[in-house]
Nucleic acid binder design. Structure first.
Length: 578
DNA sequence: ACTAGGTTGCCGGC
DNA sequence: GCCGGCAACCTAGT
């Protein structure tokens, strides 16, 4: 009797390969109902269409349910006589709350809920337990002596200790138990995969990347066609300006939606590493990239308020500016720095940029130039990236803003030199900012330095066709470093002040207190931050003044205020970016 | 208490 | 090509 009908609820994990939850749903079931809720991305909708096609090839189909999960799932379970709901576990805060509600309403109705872990390589709970109850906060910390079996360590060390992740699950049967005939809620007319228009979008997507498991596997094969490249991959050496053929795999959106299983990817990598004599190692290797994902999922899933500064125990508290003008210029690709604006345009058009390109724009927005909070940048990425992934997005923004994981805030990316190093001709800029397509290479990273007649000849007048830079990088980056130093000092002072209070361990997983105290920065944190803010202001003025004297030729003044005013006069240049 | 090392900076001086 | 400056960072391990 039990197990006659199951519901397979697809959320992430939009694939048939390595799908333990789907296998679970098929076990002893005469009827399996593969269902999903509606979301808003075209990449997602393509993934759903592909999943539906794959299910149809096996005698089934996808049923897209409209409604709130905790309401609609019990209703169809009753209608279909389903006794089990099978799903892939999801540790994101939103998913946890949703799944708790669904579990409650289904179990009240006598429907069993069975979760499988297949979105990450490992069960992150297990990893944390094996690390002594706390997630590691470093990816790699080379042990100095012979690698002992110490209690806590870096993430790579932890993974070495735990061993290889489980292999991918076997493929599902060639014929899947189909939904029963004649069920009203399984009517194709009401459960078809929606179109973009139906979800409320009027514009056509501009991303060149197509969603779906089929595409994901094809892309995986394309990368693995060159085993030497796979074995020799070193992330920091890949070219962020490559766009005809991106320098990395672009598998991130497929991993995000689960069109590609990380375990399948990982097992393929191990096979190549076994076959090739030499291969690169984490953290820079291709396998290292999967471990970064795993690392951030592990820390993120076990840290309260991970995607915020306040109340986030791993995040440094920094006095970011709420500068709407700067934020808007950055978001709308009109900072006046072609390298930055081209990347932000690629983000809007493609929904994807190279990892190091993300570094450039994230550093620029936060600790490098504009001193705007990483949370604002994270929100923009969240809206525009096709590979937007809750934990990875938050973690990388904290990294780049030197708020967590990384603290060498004086290592600032130059919005001019960094791109030039890879692409001296400015091909990337010409592709994404056509207004600059005829600017000579000599000036393309700094068009404001081009003589007026050169600008005229290139058909691009700076200040009219393309914005002037909103900051003087030499001035702004020095000021930012000074403010970061002050914020760090304030943090350490607050931490010292807070140690007197003792009580709860800093990174305790149950640190549910909403008070903004990071790394044990306790009650007196506010005072310390406030007093340091005064020092910071002085430091900014001092550093900016000194740098301003050095930067003789430029018109940008010694005060941030002045550059802000200049930026206000640049609105006319907006269309230049489009 | 102290030290080594940390996926991926940049500039100027030698 | 290798330093030090930026400003004295963090975590893990001894």
């Amino acid at each position: 009797m039990a197990g006659k009908s199951s519901i397979m609820w697809f959320r992430k994990g939009l694939r048939l390969h390595d799908n333990p939850a789907l296998l679970d749903a098929c076990k002893d079931a005469a009827h399996v109902y593969p269902v999903v809720g509606v979301n808003r991305y075209s990449f997602l909708l393509e993934s759903l269409r592909d999943l539906d096609a794959s299910l149809r090839a096996r005698g089934s189909r996808l049923l897209v349910l409209r409604g709130t999960p905790e309401q609609v799932l019990p209703r169809v379970a009753a209608e279909w006589g389903a006794t089990r709901l099978c799903l892939e576990a999801d540790t994101e805060p939103y998913a946890r709350a949703r799944d708790a509600a669904v579990r409650q309403s289904l179990e009240a109705a006598g429907v069993e809920v069975a979760a499988s872990i297949s979105h990450t390589l490992y069960d992150t709970e297990m990893l944390v337990a094996r690390n002594g109850g706390r997630p590691p906060l470093t990816m790699q910390a080379r042990p100095r002596g012979a690698g002992g079996q110490g209690p806590a360590g870096s993430f790579t060390k932890l993974v070495d200790k735990v061993g290889d992740p489980p292999p991918p699950a076997p493929d599902p049967p060639a014929a899947l138990p189909p939904p029963a005939e004649g069920m009203p809620s399984a009517d194709p007319a009401v459960t078809g995969v929606p179109t973009l228009a139906e979800v409320g979008f009027t514009e056509e997507p501009t991303t060149p990347f197509k969603g779906g498991e089929t595409e994901a596997l094809a892309r995986l094969e394309a990368s693995f066609a060159d085993p030497k490249w796979v074995a020799g991959f070193q992330k920091p050496e890949t070219d962020p300006s490559a766009f005809d053929r991106p320098a990395t795999t672009v598998l991130s959106p497929y991993l995000k939606f689960g069109c590609l299983s990380p375990r399948l990817f990982h097992s393929r990598l191990l096979a190549v590493y076994r076959a090739q004599k030499k291969h690169s190692e984490p953290p820079v290797s291709l396998r290292g990239q999967l471990l970064w994902r795993e690392f951030f999922y592990t820390v993120g899933a076990h840290t309260p308020n991970f995607n915020r500064m306040a109340g986030n125990p791993v995040c440094r508290q920094i006095d970011w500016d709420a500068n709407e003008e700067f934020l808007a210029a950055w978001r709308e690709a009109r900072t006046g720095f072609p390298w930055i604006d081209a990347i932000m345009t690629q983000l809007r058009e493609w929904g994807w940029m190279h990892h190091l390109a993300r570094h450039s724009v994230a550093c620029f927005l936060t600790r490098g130039d504009l001193y705007v909070s990483w949370e604002r940048g994270m929100e923009v990425f969240e809206e525009l990236l096709i590979d937007q992934d809750h934990y990875l997005n938050a973690a990388n923004w904290m990294w780049l803003s030197a708020s967590a994981f990384f603290s060498q805030y004086f290592r600032v990316y130059s919005p001019i030199s960094f791109g030039k190093k890879y692409d001296p001709e400015g091909r990337f800029i010409r592709r994404f900012l056509p207004v600059l397509k005829d600017m000579p290479a000599k000036y393309i990273y700094e068009p404001w330095t081009a003589p007026l007649e050169v600008q005229r000849k290139a058909g691009c007048l700076v200040g009219k066709d393309y914005p002037r830079p909103i900051v003087d990088h030499a001035v702004a980056s020095k000021a930012c470093i000074a403010r970061m130093a002050a914020a760090y000092r304030a943090g350490s002072a607050a931490a010292t002040a807070a140690t007197g209070e003792g009580a709860d361990g800093a990174a305790g997983p149950s640190g549910s207190s909403p008070a903004p105290k990071a790394k044990g920065r306790g009650g007196k944190a506010k005072e310390a931050v406030a007093s340091a803010a005064g020092k910071a202001a002085k430091a900014v003025a001092g550093a900016a003044g000194a740098a301003g004297k050095k930067a003789a030729g430029t018109a940008a003044g010694s005060k941030r205020q002045r550059t802000l005013k200049e930026s206000l006069g640049l609105q006319g240049g907006k269309e230049a970016a489009s």
